[in-house]
Design a protein around this nucleic acid. Structure first.
Length: 275
DNA sequence: CCTTGAACCTGCGGGC
DNA sequence: TGCCCGCAGGTTCAAG
């Protein structure tokens, strides 16, 4: 689930449950995810107050009292399951559970490509996890000129370049495909040959904004907030992703959505209208 | 530097 | 029905 819009949705689900609360206990179910949990992880978290939560790229950061920041990455299959504390029932692949006075926040990740760690709040941006990241696509830092500079001199396909988090942070396989469709640019085109950076920048922002709005709508709808990182209702609005063989949804285009492999990942696009 | 491919894991759906 | 294969929303590391 987790590209930028899903991570943002999870963040918005978690924030009201955790912000301002003290971590009364923490249960760790194994010694590692993608990398080992920090030494004495549960102990270092217990008793800390969660000051605020924020997102950078696909990472969720929870700033804690005591000058530390809890960093969370959902990997491919990570989810956050919220429940009233007393109603928490352990599930397979619950690797870490944070308990506040009222709530349980469970990190569940079957494939274990996710990540949980602690860093110093001061200078967090210089941490190796964040140092190499490109601009936030929804911020004013992400402009056509910035995108042009990131694509310049890159011979690899634009699809691959956009997946590289150092160009723009937060895009994944789904939303790169969708943004390129919206911009009418073929994923196969060499990055350095893309001239429509203005259109592409706008497409990226529009796709992400719409997806966040759709994720948010599932939150608004539910009495019980499920910060599960599911695609929410936006999956119904995907134009090309996972739609191989279907007619191109663009009005007036009679193309058929194709799937191709690019550096090991599936790309979906319409050869008729994406040049 | 840039680029590609493999690796890390589990679960699911399709085809036989 | 059951088994095997390929595939999955991400990142990182090695090697060319």
């Amino acid at each position: 689930m987790p590209e930028l819009p899903e991570v943002e949705t999870v963040l918005r689900g978690m924030a009201p449950v955790l912000a301002g609360q003290t971590l009364q206990s923490v249960a760790i179910g194994r010694k590692d995810l993608r990398r080992p949990f920090p030494k004495a992880f549960a102990k270092r978290l217990t008793g800390c107050k969660v000051l605020s939560l924020r997102r950078r790229a696909k990472y969720i950061l929870a700033d804690l009292s005591g000058g530390q920041t809890l960093v969370l990455h959902l990997g491919m299959s990570g989810r956050i399951r919220l429940s009233p504390r007393a109603a928490y029932v352990p599930q397979p692949h619950d690797h870490a559970v944070l308990f506040t006075q009222a709530a349980a926040v469970a990190f569940n990740d079957p494939r274990r490509f996710g990540l949980m760690t602690l860093i110093e709040t001061d200078g967090w941006a210089a941490d190796p996890l964040f140092a190499g990241l490109g601009p936030e696509p929804l911020s004013d830092d992400f402009t056509p000129a910035v995108l042009a500079a990131a694509l310049a001199g890159r011979k690899s396909p634009v699809k691959t370049a956009l997946l590289d988090q150092s160009a723009v942070a937060g895009l994944g396989n789904i939303y790169v495909c969708e943004a390129l469709f919206r911009a009418r640019i073929s994923p196969l085109r060499p990055a350095c040959a893309v001239r429509q950076t203005k259109v592409l920048t706008a497409a990226i922002k529009a796709v992400l904004t719409a997806a966040i709005a759709a994720g948010g709508s599932t939150l608004r709808d539910s009495r019980y907030v499920q910060a599960d990182g599911a695609l929410g209702y936006f999956q119904n609005r995907l134009n090309v992703y996972d739609r191989e063989g279907e007619p191109c949804p663009r009005r007036g285009c009679h193309g058929v959505v194709q799937r191709v492999k690019q550096s090991g990942r599936s790309s979906f696009y319409c050869p008729a209208c994406q040049k």
